[in-house]
Design a protein around this nucleic acid. Structure first.
Lengths: 161, 161
DNA sequence: ACGCAGTGTTGGCAATACCAACGAATTGGG
DNA sequence: CCCAATTCGTTGGTATTGCCAACACTGCGT
């Protein structure tokens, strides 16, 4: 999505232009739309997150999956309902703790995940086009630092014992 | 919002943790909540943007204000209705072009803006707490570069002739 | 005079994030 | 052994945000 030549350049207010909160909001909105464009459907974005989580951590409970992805338990239910219906994930009761379902990704889910991988990568490339490799790393490192400070998310190497 | 000690640390999937689009989405969500907490009401966030725009560019038309802020014309209407009702902005028909309203900030609006300034600054401080001054500048510079590439937004010094 | 574009407004929709409440199950302490 | 607290999965719901179409009025250029 290169800038349309007909769109007039504008300067936002200085107050907003120099505040991280506004900048993050604006960039995130464009990023969201880019991913949406590349994935084609609205729920593919969260499907991708769920499949990625299951591929890496499955079998896993719904609640634990939600914690790993930063998603609400009730939203996880709706997402898994659709994915199970599409044959991309499977739920079975956990024999050792009947409160839980054990959720896994299916072979079809893995194939879908790989297709989505490509599209999500393409979206990253478009989003980050004006940055070189070093700058991209810097941006990610700064965002990760902020997440580690403000959430329970940790870089995988830093896992609590 | 320091990390609650009781919240368990979790690692998200590697696929997400290393993708800028996911990181931006997550950080932006926390940033949004921080600003919400500091401002107290949902619409204060956009009120702030509107007042900031009017303070810097007023008098200005509604459509031009929307372009400067990245907001939809119909959302600008609703926002100005509330702000006008609260005495913080004033609309008058533009004598030279009857399609337009000329919108200005009032003295009450300027006072409100200064109060909101303080709260928004406090939110920045909390959000950026784990970064030093140089890193904060870096983050903003990278985000601004992305915005300049993907939107009509330009740093004020770069204004088109 | 006409077509096109801009402006402000109204009415509306989809997606997302978030929450409460409930029933069933598990755990740990008294 | 009993009970309180917590966890899990589910249902049902709400608020907010971003976005869009359509309309009437106005301005501009041909």
């Amino acid at each position: 999505m290169a800038r349309e030549p007909s769109v007039r350049a504008v300067a936002p207010p200085e107050r907003l232009w120099h505040r991280s909160t506004w900048l993050l909001s604006q960039v995130s909105a464009r990023s969201y739309r880019l991913v949406l464009d590349h994935l084609g459907t609205a729920n593919a974005r969260t499907d991708y997150a769920v499949l990625a989580g299951l591929d890496e951590f499955g079998p896993i409970s719904q609640a634990a999956l939600g914690r790993r992805l930063g998603l609400d338990r009730s939203d996880i239910v709706a997402l898994l309902n659709d994915l199970e219906r599409g044959g991309l994930v499977a739920r079975t009761p956990d024999d050792s703790d009947r409160r839980r379902n054990s959720v896994t990704i299916t072979a079809g889910g893995k194939r879908a995940l790989r297709r989505l991988d490509k599209r999500v990568d393409a979206a990253q490339q478009v989003l980050l086009a004006p940055l070189n490799v070093s700058e991209r790393r810097q941006l990610n490192a700064l965002l990760q630092r902020l997440l580690e400070h403000h959430t329970a998310f940790r870089t995988p190497e830093q896992r609590s014992p």
